[in-house]
Each structure stands twice: as structure tokens, then as C-alpha cells.
Design a protein around this nucleic acid. Structure first.
Lengths: 195, 195
DNA sequence: CCATATATGTACTTATCGGTTCATAATGAA
DNA sequence: TTCATTATGAACCGATAAGTACATATATGG
């Protein structure tokens, strides 16, 4: 047995960054080799194919880059309002400053219904996003920030859809002020007495 | 002078359909030739390059396939509520039944800030969409359906972003009921006394 | 320290990419 | 009817796509 010379996780991470910014078909294996810093031999030995690596990259994105992971009410749950504001703020920053949109959303659009493996990864990721938001909603309904008569699942899905809407709109128009306005409108729906 | 054997507009239309469903990099010139029913010679003579044809297709989409064109309050302005419901209904139908999402939105995500010609077409298209929705909002504020104290531009952008959010969410989760719920939530923001 | 199993890079393969060349066909103007 | 002009499709082009073959390097278990 000879041990691998490169760090597999680091390689997947680098591949993910490339796929994230240039989608699947926009990236060649040569691009991947350059980004990962390895040769063709071990690329195919380690990952099998471009497509398999893409699926690994998508999963890696899901567990490491979903915004909800970072803004998940740390250091502790202060308020639903703060959690959601932070989430929308980070999203707008990523959209405008880093020129990045959710990799799962891009994958969902790029592969329509044509790839069931991708569909499954995306489905799970969006579900996780919704679930985390649901927890924030329920917390907010506990503190009274969010009206108790609203269906928390409906609100969670509404917010999730809005997160994606902001990204597409932002990519089309590139205007931070308008994005903040849109986000504020969304939040005013959820927390009518705070806005 | 010899006249062209094929219908240029029809060819652009067919190319648009292919680009729409499989994006830019997902389509080869061979695919385009098949869809358009012409040979390579006249393809390059008539359109110059794949990219130029894509720009033509994007513009063709903008003037012929934007949902707002079809649901633009025909046969006459009855109510903002009906106009918006129809718009969201058609969008959900297109997303779920036809498995299609706005070509401009896809283009915005596919080409980040990398292609200024695409960016310009997308920008104009989204602006047109917003402007049409703005008219509906203003009409609704006239009839009293929509509160007059809301900024109509803000509402218009909010709705536009929601239209895109619904499409991405729909592509990820493929659930009509949830989409209708999200749309209803959006409309309840705009017309609080109607929902 | 040796043998074997795996890692790696180079060279190669087959197919397709977007695009060009060019001979030929068809047209309208003279 | 001729002639210049343009449309057309088949053959062709270099570049690149994803993936494979294989010789060589290297580490670890015995």
C-alpha cells in the first residue's frame, strides 16, 4: 500500500470552488486537475469520473457552504429577528460582493429533471435549509416576534423561496440597495410588528 | 441575390427552445443545426457564431416568452388581484408542468458577470418585467386593492424576486401545492385585505 | 530488505467541439 | 440569357473534450 500524496478533502474542496463558480459543463477535467493540483492518473483512480467528483463537490457544498450553517444563531439564540436579518445580510453580501449564488440552486436549474442523483442532493439541501429556518420561525413564535397564527412551515418555505429569489434578482440587476429593500419586505411579512 | 430557403425567425425560435431547455454550454452547434433544420454553411453565414445566435435567442425570448406578456391584464384590466394571480398561476404551471424556468434568470446565473452582452439583455428584460408589475401595482393602488402607503417600486421588485424564487424552489422541490402556498403568501403581503 | 500493491504522470485514444473552405446550386439584375 | 451574388451542404480543420493504458515511483506489510 502506498499512501495518497494529496489531501482528498482539500482536492474536493478546490473542485467544488471551480464547479461552484463555473457550473458543471463550464469546467473541463483539465481545469479540475489544475485546481486540485493533481495529475490525470490519480484523478480517475481517486474519483472515477468528472461526474462523480461533481456529486462529491455538491455534497461537500451542502455540508460546508450553505449559508444557514454559518448564521445558525451563534453564539446563541438571541432573537428570530437577528437570525433572519443576519441570514439575509450574508446572502446579499455573497450575491453582490462575492458574486456567488447557491450552488444547489444553480445545480437545480442546470440539471432540470435530467439527473436524479443531483436532484436528490439538491432536495435534501433545500430541505435542511427549510428546517433550520423553521426552527428560527418556531423560536420567534415563542418569543412573540412572529405571530402565532401563521403556519410556520408556510413561512419557512416562503423565506426559502425568497432567499433564492434574491440571488437570481441580484445576479440580474446587481443592486445592493434594492436587495436590502426586498429582504426587508420579506421580513416585514414574517415579523409585522418589528418592521 | 438568392433568397434564403429557411425562415430566419422560425430558426431563431427553434434555437431558443433548445438553449432555453439546455442552457448555452449544454447545446452544441450540431444540436442547433438539427433543431433549426439547416446546414453548417448557412448557419454561419446567417448567424455568425453560436454565441451571436444565443444573443438573438435571448432577445427573442425576451420579446415573446416572458410570462408578463401573456398575462398582461387581457382582455382588460379587471383587478390587480386577478392579474397577479394569473401571473403566479402561469408561472407555477410553467415550472411544474412544463419544467421550464425563465431563460433570462438561467442566463443571469450561467454567465455571472462574465458576459456584458448577456447582462444587458437580462437587465432590460427584468426591468420590463418590473415595470409591467409596477403598472399592476399602481392600478391596484387606484382601486384600493393595494394599500396606498406602500412604495409601489418596492412591491414590484419584491414580486419580481418572488417570481424567480418560486422557480428555483420549484425546480428543487417539484411540489405544486407548496408553490401555490408561497405565491399566496407573497400576494397576501401585497394585498393584505384580499387574503 | 524485499515483494507487492497502490499512487502517479505521460502518452495516447476516440469523439466532439466551434468554425472554415469551397464547389455547387439557385437567384435577381442587366 | 447571361452574370454577379448569395445560399447551401459536404468535406475539412485544429483544438479540446473525457477517459484509458501503462511504465514508473513509492510506501508498507511480511
Amino acid at each position: 500500500m502506498r499512501q495518497r500524496e494529496f489531501d482528498t478533502q482539500k482536492a474536493i474542496h478546490n473542485a467544488m470552488e471551480v464547479f461552484w463558480s463555473r457550473s458543471y459543463k463550464g469546467v473541463s477535467t483539465k481545469d479540475l486537475l489544475t485546481a486540485m493540483g493533481i495529475g490525470k492518473g490519480c484523478f480517475y483512480a481517486a474519483f472515477g469520473s468528472k461526474r462523480e467528483l461533481y456529486l462529491l463537490a455538491l455534497r461537500h457544498y451542502r455540508v460546508s457552504k450553505m449559508l444557514i450553517k454559518q448564521s445558525n444563531r451563534t453564539p446563541g439564540p438571541t432573537s428570530a429577528d437577528e437570525s433572519l436579518r443576519k441570514l439575509f445580510g450574508q446572502l446579499i453580501d455573497r450575491t453582490i460582493n462575492q458574486h456567488k449564488t447557491c450552488m444547489l440552486g444553480k445545480a437545480a436549474l442546470e440539471f432540470r429533471g435530467s439527473d436524479s442523483a443531483v436532484a436528490e442532493i439538491v432536495d435534501v439541501g433545500v430541505s435542511q435549509l427549510e428546517e433550520t429556518i423553521l426552527k428560527i420561525i418556531l423560536y420567534g413564535q415563542g418569543t412573540g416576534e412572529i405571530p402565532k397564527d401563521r403556519n410556520p412551515h408556510t413561512l419557512s418555505r416562503f423565506i426559502t423561496a425568497n432567499l433564492y429569489g434574491i440571488q437570481v434578482w441580484g445576479r440580474a440587476k446587481l443592486c445592493r440597495e434594492n436587495l436590502e429593500e426586498i429582504a426587508a419586505t420579506t421580513l416585514s411579512v414574517v415579523m409585522p410588528n418589528k418592521h
